[in-house]
């Protein structure tokens, strides 16, 4: 039976994943021997240059794609955990109202109509979208849509939450506001989070740990512990040493990003 009140954050182990894309013009190692561990309830960000395979990695963890080699494991779980994915954009069905979109996950979990509509409504009201519940996504701004998409994932009480640059398409101010929503929602149920971004500062402000990836072949270069306490100050002003960490991570990526400018795609 469906139990909406509990979620059980779970350990996530990624074990020597490899993935190669082949095309008539050559092949790319999207991922090569990627291994890491995320503790139950930990918020981990993945940063790396574009094309380093971070999205592929996330999709494999979500089960949207299968790897060539390696495996995903959830140690200590008898049953498969509830993994939910938040996409970059197009994250809402254009043919459902915002409320039905947010209730969609609950609907798939088998929750009765009245109950799920009430729950989705509550969640939307908490995010300041009460007046837009019966609107369709195209009637909302990008920020509102992304807020609703995040609500859609959280309202199902996932054990593991996978987010693929969910704030990429938003402007800087909107982004800061939604980062705040995101952390508040996460604090409430503390699912295990894997968060892909290309924004180093965002990674440092949100996560407990930042995994820095390098591309071609895609692998984990280094894991950076984020020393800041919670709740976070999303302006970064109160966090000692954030500039230093940003600089360190940038130095790891700089060479590769510059190289990309001189390289054509295979």
């Amino acid at each position: 039976m469906y139990n909406m009140m509990t979620n059980q954050a779970t350990d996530l182990r990624v074990d020597s994943l490899s993935m190669r894309y082949s095309s008539p013009r050559g092949s790319v190692d999207a991922l090569q021997g990627v291994s890491f561990h995320v503790a139950a309830g930990e918020f981990v960000a993945l940063v790396g240059p574009s094309g380093c395979g971070k999205s592929t990695l996330l999709r494999i963890v979500a089960g949207l794609q299968s790897p060539d080699l390696g495996e995903i494991a959830f140690p200590g779980r008898q049953t498969a955990p509830k993994c939910r994915f938040v996409f970059q954009n197009h994250a809402l069905f254009p043919w459902m109202t915002v409320r039905d979109n947010v209730a969609f996950g609950l609907e798939m979990d088998g929750m009765p109509g009245a109950e799920r509509r009430a729950l989705a409504g509550e969640q939307l009201a908490a995010l300041g979208l009460a007046d837009f519940m019966d609107h369709y996504p195209h009637e909302l701004s990008g920020g509102m849509c992304q807020r609703a998409a995040i609500a859609q994932a959280f309202v199902t009480r996932p054990d593991v939450l996978l987010m693929d640059e969910p704030l990429r398409a938003l402007d800087a101010q909107m982004r800061m506001v939604i980062q705040e929503d995101l952390l508040a929602l996460w604090e409430r149920t503390r699912p295990t989070v894997l968060y892909v971004t290309h924004d180093i500062e965002e990674a440092l402000l949100l996560a407990d740990r930042v995994l820095v990836m390098s591309g071609r072949p895609g692998r984990i270069r280094e894991a950076v512990e984020v020393p800041f306490g919670r709740p976070r100050d999303l302006t970064g002003r109160n966090h000692q040493g954030i500039e230093e960490l940003k600089w360190r991570i940038w130095k790891m990526l700089e060479q590769e990003v510059k190289q990309q400018l001189h390289m054509s795609r295979p």
Partner: peptide, 17 residues
């Protein structure tokens, strides 16, 4: 758009849903 198939599949939608 395949995003919608994936979105639905990720939330556990099967054939009829």
């Amino acid at each position: 758009d395949c995003v919608y198939w994936e979105l639905a599949a990720n939330y556990g939608a099967r054939r009829l849903a």
